[in-house]
């Protein structure tokens, strides 16, 4: 449903500070996918996602939503941004209203919804983030804990009922419990609410487990793409561009390198545990 065609972006063209952040990127994201975008800091990931909902205008190339260019002029930008919602890194920094209710309602209000619908949307957003509507709606967002603030900011995006959510490092700076909870909520949005999720992250363990497809960026170019099993099957290349393998893949590859006949395309602790146990119990090396 989202397509990027030959997109390049140059920051501050024509000054000594000119930087070519993206070079000739083409990619396609289908409805219902969970896509991970990985790459070093400064590789162009954040620049790319800001193109997907029209916050940045491509220097050349195009972005298509359901086959229509979002820059054709016929399309209402606000409508696009409500369909493709973007949550920046540390989204709690964007909170500004006096109450949680008003802050979550900011997005839907900009869509011109009436008060009754607004209330429904706010309730929906907060409930998706497992925040109790009645007890949170009148509190000041500035009095909440870090994790709660982040979930309120996320609720503000969900209240616009988007089809695609783009999350830029959603778990950065959260404690392990907060991280686990937020990831579970995102997973639920994908599986139950059928949202298309695009997640930018540095955490290979999270993304390999959650995403069904990965895009790997390096120095403004799209260098690798495919299922996690395919991408992390080229460990040499991944390390070359300054990234790490998921811990579990690292373990499986080490075992394989030491001569064990073991699968390396597994990304959850359960699967990997099962595979290793099976290998050592069953003595599968005999099968070969």
């Amino acid at each position: 449903m989202l397509e990027v065609k030959n997109l390049s972006h140059v920051y501050m063209p024509g000054t000594p500070f000119q930087v070519e952040a993206l070079k000739e990127i083409s990619l396609k994201i289908e409805k219902g996918e969970f896509v991970g975008i990985i790459g070093e800091t400064g590789s162009g990931k954040s620049t790319l996602v800001q193109h997907l909902n029209g916050l940045l205008r491509p220097t050349s190339g195009d972005v298509l939503l359901d086959g229509c260019s979002i820059w054709s002029g016929k399309v209402n930008m606000r409508a696009i941004r409500s369909r493709v919602a973007l949550l920046f890194q540390y989204p709690e920094h964007q909170l500004f209203e006096e109450t949680v209710y008003k802050d979550v309602a900011f997005g839907p209000r900009n869509l011109g919804l009436d008060e009754k619908e607004l209330q429904k949307r706010v309730r929906y957003g907060l409930e998706q983030m497992e925040l109790d509507y009645e007890s949170y709606k009148d509190r000041s967002p500035f009095s909440l804990s870090g994790g709660e603030k982040r979930r309120v900011a996320m609720a503000g995006i969900l209240a616009m009922k988007p089809e695609v959510i783009i999350l830029d490092e959603p778990t950065a700076g959260l404690d392990p419990a907060g991280r686990r909870q937020l990831l579970a909520l995102i997973e639920k949005l994908h599986s139950e609410e059928k949202l298309t999720v695009i997640m930018v992250t540095h955490n290979m363990d999270e993304v390999s487990r959650l995403a069904n497809r990965l895009f790997v960026f390096s120095a403004g170019r799209l260098v690798l793409q495919g299922e996690p099993a395919v991408v992390f099957n080229s460990p040499q290349k991944i390390k070359e561009i300054g990234l790490e393998l998921p811990v579990l893949s690292e373990l499986l590859l080490k075992l394989k390198d030491s001569g064990k006949n073991i699968r390396t395309d597994l990304f959850t602790v359960e699967e990997v545990g099962k595979e290793i146990l099976e290998y050592f119990r069953g003595g599968r090396s005999c099968k070969v």
Binding site: R81, F88, H93, Q94, F106, G107, I157
Partner: peptide
């Protein structure tokens, strides 16, 4: 940079 980021974050929520 910060104001640019916040501006974009609010624009992503339909701010004008």
């Amino acid at each position: 940079e910060e104001s640019d980021k916040i501006r974009k974050a609010q624009m992503a929520r339909g701010a004008d």
